[in-house]
Amino acid sequence: MAETAGRLERLRPYRAVLASRARSQRAYRANFAVDLVSSLLVGVVELAEVWVLFTNVTALGGMRFNQILLVFGLADLAFSLADLSFGHLDNLPDFLRAGTLDVFYLRPQPVLAQLITSDISLRRLARAAVGAAAMGAGLTTSGVTWSPHAAVLLVLGLVSGYATFAGMFVLAAGLQFFLLDGAEMTNAFVYGGRYAATQPASVWTRPLKLVFGFFFPMAFTAYLPAVAILGLPGPQWLPAWLGWCAPAAALWSWATGLLCWRWGLRHYQGGGG
């Protein structure tokens, strides 16, 4: 009991900031409505880009449209939720330019934990809803044989996918300390990563499989769990059983992310920033 209370107390600083951010976003109702609709449309247009391809062909990379819906849905749901809770790490270059990162040093919590909980973008819930709907449609129309296995894979894939994308945001933030004006470079694996995650990895060339299959483990966020759930064989280098390894990808993503963040912070404290 006392231990739980202590832990809750330790989270109080983070809760206070997040609750306040969430309140202030909903305070301006008209703005928030516009944000929600915009975010919803972003999700819809991204889905439409995939759908357009399937008006020309029946299968891509060995997957029909309803199967791709599962990949797209898993990827976009996980990414939108990661974006909701970690996306503001993208603002780090502004903090670095203005010197406002220093303010975080004056507070008795770890800098990264403060940055992560410094904001929350509730509008991304609308885009997550598009992902959830696509995932639901994919699951119900592609003839998944339900089993405990499939259910575990789905949950495992979603949670790991969320964590993997979140780790990518941390990795990008760590690199910002070095990239400075070249901040856009991290878009390649953060937003490029999201785009890759919605694709059937079977269409990738070998270098792409290496980069987005393993180094930035995007195939593990949606494609591999989906292939395992659907009972499809994976392509060369990416067999279906790897779908079970999604948590390992999440761990790898966070390991590289935290390592980079540590390097970045050291660089900053060393005065190179």
């Binding site: 809760r15 306040s20 202030s24 507070r107 008795p108």
Partner: peptide, 22 residues
């Protein structure tokens, strides 16, 4: 470099800081 939250009332900034310093 401001330590306050730009879009929040002063009172709320102080409340958050009180939580941050426990």
């Amino acid at each position: 470099r401001s330590q306050l939250w730009w879009d929040l009332p002063v009172r709320e900034s102080l409340r958050i800081l009180a939580a941050i310093h426990m």
